[in-house]
Simulated scan of single mutants.
Amino acid sequence: MFVNNGWIVEAKLNQGELENFKAVMNSQIKRALAEKGTLNYQYYLSDAGDIMVYERFADPDSSHEHIENWDAHAKRWMAAAALTRMLHLGDLPEDVRERHAALSPTWLKPLGGFARENAQGSLIDNNGDTTFENFGWIVEAKLNDGQLANFKAVMNSQIERAKTEEGTLNYQYYMSDEGDILVYERFKDLAASFTHIENWDAHAERWIAAATPTRMVHLGDLPQELREKHAALAPLLLKPFGGFAR
């Protein structure tokens, strides 16, 4: 099992607002770099203007500090992009949950998996802007009726195998009280991601019998060969846009 304090924000870039969005994003990132408890602050963008922000904090107090960063930038941010969805990831305190109530975030709690906390972070200085590299994806699904025990069994089998995959850095299952499932997967490099796909292939039939996949998002500059492995789910491709992972 793992501990997580954070969330995912999704949005759509407003027409003609790319440069303004970049400006407010880079201002937020610069401030977030001074927030010792902000571990991940990663912006992704698709070619069609789909935005995802993955945010993770050392503890609930650190999330409060980062919310102050948002408050200082919110007006400019929402002038450049329209918020569409929010997911809370982890056992977040009620005051944080209430802070985001306007977006009615789905609350997904840790169900199983791991994060290799000693893995090297990814932070790149690109001509004064901060960005990162990423190899991974997010899978979303809905638990099938009466299948919780079977789903946990196949999940735990996958996790045990994934622990032997040195290049699998994050393999984290979340579930809401209503049976919404999210799996966050991150790999050291492309070779590691292909190794992990073999894990999925060995478990796919049991997994799909217990839960119905609903959405997939590719995170990073993934090659076409890998993208074709998941073609049945028509994954959205989101590329690193700015931010960091510590």
Rank of each mutant, 00 (worst) to 15 (best):
S62W: 06
W77D: 05
E98S: 01
E55R: 04
H66V: 13
A202I: 01
G37H: 00
E10F: 13
L103S: 15
E55V: 02
V154G: 13
T195K: 03
M216K: 09
Y184A: 08
D95E: 08
W7M: 13
L233Q: 04
W207E: 13
L13P: 11
A80N: 07
N40R: 10
Y54E: 05
A231P: 15
N5Q: 14
Q172E: 10
A119L: 14
Y173S: 15
K163F: 06
Y54K: 04
E10M: 14
R206T: 10
G128C: 03
K163Y: 08
L233V: 03
M86G: 11
A72K: 01
N40Y: 09
N134E: 08
N127S: 10
E133Y: 09
L92K: 04
P235F: 03
L108T: 12
P223N: 04
K22M: 07
R85T: 02
M86P: 15
G16W: 06
E35H: 14
G37E: 01
L169W: 04
L123P: 03
Q158K: 10
N14M: 09
H100R: 08
A23W: 00
E225F: 00
L169D: 05
P60I: 00
E98N: 01
E205C: 03
L237Y: 05
P235A: 01
N144S: 05
N40A: 09
N134M: 10
V96L: 15
L226Y: 07
N127W: 06
L39Q: 15
P60T: 00
Q15I: 05
Q158D: 11
E198R: 00
K12C: 02
S46C: 04
G167M: 13
A210M: 05
E205H: 01
V53Q: 02
I181C: 07
S27F: 00
I8R: 08
K163D: 04
A80C: 11
D95H: 10
M155W: 07
L39N: 13
N144P: 07
T130F: 11
F114I: 07
H88Q: 12
I138L: 14
D71M: 13
G6Q: 08
A32G: 10
F241N: 06
M78W: 09
T212I: 03
L190K: 01
A245K: 10
F2S: 08
L190I: 00
V139A: 15
L237S: 11
N26V: 04
Y173D: 13
T168W: 00
M52T: 02
E94G: 04
Y171A: 02
P93L: 10
E198Y: 02
P105S: 10
I138T: 13
P235H: 02
G179V: 03
Q224G: 12
G179P: 12
W200M: 00
V96F: 14
A82K: 12
E166V: 08
F151R: 10
E35M: 12
A72S: 02
A82N: 07
K239I: 00
D61C: 05
A204W: 06
L190W: 00
N134R: 14
I138R: 11
A81T: 05
H100E: 12
N5S: 09
I208V: 15
P235L: 02
M216Q: 07
R116S: 11
N126C: 15
R186M: 08
W7Q: 11
E117I: 12
